[in-house]
Write a protein that binds this DNA or RNA. Structure first.
Lengths: 256, 256
DNA sequence: GACATTCTCGTACTAAGTACGGATATACGT
DNA sequence: ACGTATATCCGTACTTAGTACGAGAATGTC
């Protein structure tokens, strides 16, 4: 997962911005396939089976090519992921109407990103550190900054708000995705799990030792149908986020 | 990373709650080491080099045992991680003073968790899905719920608020940790990176095509000293969170 | 058509997880 | 004291995955 051995940032940038560079015919053998198809296939595999299942070997097989051919196109798995990410960013919907309340726009950004993570759950697992500044990434950034125009905050704050939204959305999405994956990969039903672990769960939810955990855990589990309810977490997080932003800009303006 | 092949929840619970179960002497060879030491060593390796570097083979070597001996203690890597997590939860500080404003308490929870992720960056990478209900996890839950006592919200909401805090903190921590890792693993200085990628960065921050990105990206980068500033993200996120919670409970009460 | 250049991909090495099974040590009943 | 059941130990070996290397194949240019 963390194989950034020979990280070659310049090579990556060249690939990310491949469309903006003129291609003059050069000597040498022609390529057997387009890198777009390769990235496409990689995204498809990752969408269905997770980033871990997106192996170079599997990718090559999906493309009916021998394994090592992949390395003609990308330097390795580490380079492929940013390319995949920039590609799905590139394709995001960027057609939100402009004549709305700022709240609607924030929610829209959040939901668009949520949808992204629903379609491509692996994206939530990708680092946020120094993002790869590809065309999709920048286009997304530009679009989302525009949506925050009428917050009426200074540039730096606008960037902060956006970063914050994206971090929170990614976090909730990641939690949901992981839960999905676990549920799906567990052959055991919740029912069965409960029965099998009953003795230990009695220890965990012992009202003597952990009164609050027992009471509130039960209440929450009851109300939300499990330890973690993706939909509820989502709504809750978005509402909190809106309120938090409102307080921020309300401070700068007179009120809202 | 995602090897939950033979997930044996009952076995995991038995290990998590090992201290609460009487150990009666049984026939069979004695163990050569305590599982605590094994978990300890695993945590140490993961702290220093990340979860990916915490290999069964490496762990065995650190303990001066042959590889396969590890499997006498845990069923595999997948089982080890929840044990590590519960252990670090168990050790968290739970001595916050009770006579404070709810805000201070929320901040305290957030900071305690942040500290956890600073000491154990790998923890931020671990799934949030169905958590393993070990003694450390429950103790932490109990303690944190108690800190939210005087929010004056119902049980379900209290749980939601806590979950939300933890999700947000984990998200920011993860972003920071990943960035740290990338910076450290990149042999290249920022300066050098900038120079080498200048032509592409000109494309990315083209004021014609991406005016907002160019302007705001520059402003933010300038003000925060990079694309992502961990400290600033942290403060911003916590402030937003507090405001968001305030709005929530302010709605229930008359005001604050 | 020779040449430099680029792409193709078979071979092979490395790292890591872990299934399997024989060897070994221990508690307990006789 | 001894046999038996049982738990632990760990060497061997198989599997999956990433990828270094280098010989050969194809292609634009002079």
């Amino acid at each position: 997962m963390r194989d950034q051995k020979a990280n070659d940032p310049a090579g990556l940038m060249k690939l990310l911005w491949r469309d903006s560079v003129d291609i003059v015919p050069k000597p040498g053998r022609k390529r057997g396939l387009a890198i777009e198809g390769l990235i496409e296939a990689a995204i498809g595999i990752a969408d269905e089976h997770g980033l871990a299942a997106m192996t170079i070997r599997g990718l090559a097989a999906a493309l009916h090519k021998p394994t090592m051919t992949i390395y003609t196109y990308v330097s390795g798995k580490a380079e492929l992921v940013p390319l995949m990410l920039d590609t799905i960013y590139q394709r995001m919907d960027r057609s939100a109407p402009a004549d709305r309340d700022w709240r609607d726009k924030v929610v829209r950004i959040a939901e668009d990103n949520r949808r992204l993570f629903e379609r491509h759950p692996w994206a939530a697992d990708v680092s946020f550190g120094r993002p790869s500044l590809g065309p999709g990434t920048i286009a997304k950034y530009e679009y989302e900054l525009a949506a925050l125009e009428d917050l009426g905050v200074d540039d730096v704050t606008r960037d902060s708000v956006l970063t914050h939204i994206l971090v929170v959305v990614a976090a909730v999405a990641r939690a949901s995705a992981n839960q999905d994956l676990e549920v799906r990969s567990s052959a055991q039903s919740d029912e069965e799990w409960w029965r099998e672990n009953a003795p230990f769960l009695a220890l965990a939810f012992d009202p003597e030792k952990f009164p609050l955990a027992a009471r509130i855990g039960a209440a929450a589990g009851d109300a939300l149908g499990g330890a973690f309810n993706a939909e509820h977490s989502w709504t809750f997080a978005v509402d909190r986020m809106i309120d938090g932003i409102e307080a921020l800009i309300g401070r700068g303006r007179s009120s809202t």
